[in-house]
Every structure is written in C-alpha cells, then in structure tokens.
C-alpha cells in the first residue's frame, strides 16, 4: 500500500486515450464502477444499467439508435481535413490528422446521414468526440452547412447531435468562422420554416455552444451532459472559486431556460419522432395565415 493516494483522477490521462465505446466482454461504468456485460450496455444504448450514466458514444452508435432498422445513407463522406495554416504545436496538425484518422476510422469530427426515424424522413449530422475532442474545424462546418442545404432542398427536418470541446485551434480563424457559417445557414433554414432539432450531449462547449448547438427550434439535452460556453476550468480560474454542484449540466440549462427538455438516450427516438410527427401534422389551410393588416 502506498503512502499517498491520488486525489484527483485523470489529470495525466490524455483525452485521446479514452475510448468512446469499450470492447471486451465486461464494461466497467465510469461513475458507479459496476461491471456490466458489454452486450447489456449496448442493448441499453450505452446508458449504465445501474446508475444511468450516459457513456460517450459516437456517430455510428447514434445513427444505429435513431434510424429505422439501422438503415441510412451517409452523405458528404468524401470530405477530409486540410491543414491550411500548416499548424504545428507539439506535433504537426498533419500528423495529428493522419494518426487520428487511422486510430478512429473517422474522417473528421462529424458525419451526416439521411434516413427515416419512425418513418419520418430526416437528415442527421452527428459529431464524434473521438476525433480531436470533437473539435470544430472546416470539415465540421462544411458538413453542417451541406446538411442544412440538404434539409432545405428536400424540405426535411435537420437534426444536429453536438458533442464537442469547441473550436479546433489548429485551424485558428478558419475554425472561428465556422460558427458564422453554420449560423448563417441556420438563418436560411429558419426562414424557410424547416424544423431544426439541436441535441446536446456530453460535452457541448465553446464555439459549438456559441453557434449551431444553441440555435435549435428545439434544444434537447441528454441527462447530466456538460453544456456551456466557457470551460469549467477557465471559469474556476477566473472567479477563483469552486463551481457549484451541477453547474453547466443539462439540468442547470433546463432550469435557466436554455433547453426545451431533457430526454434519456433510451427514450430519445420515441420522443424525437413524437415531436417531429406533431410538426408534420396535416396542415389545415387557413385564411389570413400571412398578416395583411390594414
């Protein structure tokens, strides 16, 4: 037995080493530490059957959960990250991209697919935290922009599943401008009366929160997700105090009026399709829909 016990967990654990979905027969819950059969976790959509923790999952899992019979068509999967600034920190961005692509099997931190959710035709763009912390660079912005254009062209609802640490620093101002780009496209979607459901999952922070994630006609959160603009560490350093319990959680945002409702992942498909069904209800043509007041 050692004399010293580690008080804080995970300080030295690089984010990239954390796996979104663990393999192996048993899965140990990140919070209650209970060992659960992996297949049970999978059947329960990676929500701990003991404590209800929503494990981080990726686009593959979300598409499987939401699309009918797990059938969908992936769109815009021919886009890869570039390195316009030839950025190098402790490692070159080029190498970082190559390594992450080979390690994660993903092309960037977002994928788009179209298909049916309980027979309602939609387009879904979903972020992958496993790709450089789900950070938003040019590819993420471009995929979201194209997904919105697709929704406008087909006149089908647009669903965005956010899971991101924020902007991708290695693309600097290009990354920043993706906030303006995606928000401008959403303005067009909004004007055309097409529903936009923004689904916030753990974590949704930084430039993602300050653009498309907060602009849903409906902002919908998974339970206990971290959702905020400034990261908790930055705020703690700024105010020089510990943060209150539950600060920047889904429940905190619900209380302060920034999300419409919280839905457990296991109920998500049902609730989303119920909402989409209501919006798609047969429209009664009504006189005076456009106000022409004298």
């Amino acid at each position: 037995m050692s004399w010293f016990k580690r008080v804080k967990e995970g300080i030295t654990t690089a984010t990239k080493e954390k796996k979104s979905t663990p393999d192996g027969l048993w899965h140990k819950c990140g919070r209650c530490k209970k060992a659960i059969l992996t297949k049970d976790m999978q059947a329960n959509m990676w929500v701990c059957t003991n404590c209800g923790l929503h494990e981080k999952i990726g686009s593959k899992e979300y598409f499987d959960i939401l699309f009918d019979e797990q059938q969908f068509t992936e769109l815009f999967d021919n886009i890869y990250p570039a390195d316009p600034l030839e950025f190098t920190d402790t490692k070159s961005y080029k190498d970082r991209i190559t390594d992450t692509i080979s390690k994660s099997g993903l092309k960037d931190a977002a994928r788009t697919a179209t298909g049916n959710v309980n027979n309602i035709h939609v387009v879904i763009c979903c972020m992958d935290f496993g790709f450089i912390g789900g950070s938003m660079g040019s590819v993420v912005g471009e995929k979201i922009a194209r997904s919105i254009d697709y929704a406008r062209e087909k006149r089908i609802p647009f669903l965005m599943i956010s899971k991101s640490g924020g902007a991708r620093m290695m693309e600097a101002a290009y990354s920043l401008m993706q906030m303006a780009k995606t928000s401008a496209k959403l303005a067009l979607l909004d004007m055309e009366g097409i529903p936009y459901l923004s689904i916030l999952t753990d974590p949704t922070t930084g430039g993602v929160t300050a653009s498309f994630a907060m602009l849903g006609d409906f902002n919908i959160a998974e339970p206990e997700a971290l959702i905020g603009f400034a990261g908790p560490r930055v705020i703690r350093e700024t105010i020089g105090k510990d943060l209150p319990k539950g600060f920047q959680s889904s429940e905190f945002l619900l209380e302060h009026g920034f999300v419409d409702f919280i839905v457990p992942r296991t109920e998500m498909k049902k609730k989303l399709s119920l909402l989409l069904g209501m919006l798609a209800d047969k429209k009664i043509e009504r006189e005076g829909e456009k106000l022409n007041l004298q």
């Binding site: 928000s183 401008a184 303005a187 653009s211 400034a230 930055v234």
Partner: peptide, 25 residues
C-alpha cells in the same frame, strides 16, 4: 466574452449564437 458563473447562467453561448444568426440576415 466574459467567462463566469452569471454569464453561463444567462446563456453566453446562446446570446452569441443568436447574434451570429441574426447578423447574417
């Protein structure tokens, strides 16, 4: 943008996001 408890409570992310969308049009 100001990072702080109150900024988060009152939706710093939402406020900025809304401006981006509205300024575009």
């Amino acid at each position: 943008a100001s990072p702080g408890l109150e900024a988060e409570e009152r939706g710093q992310g939402e406020a900025i996001a809304k401006n981006l969308m509205e300024m575009a049009v």
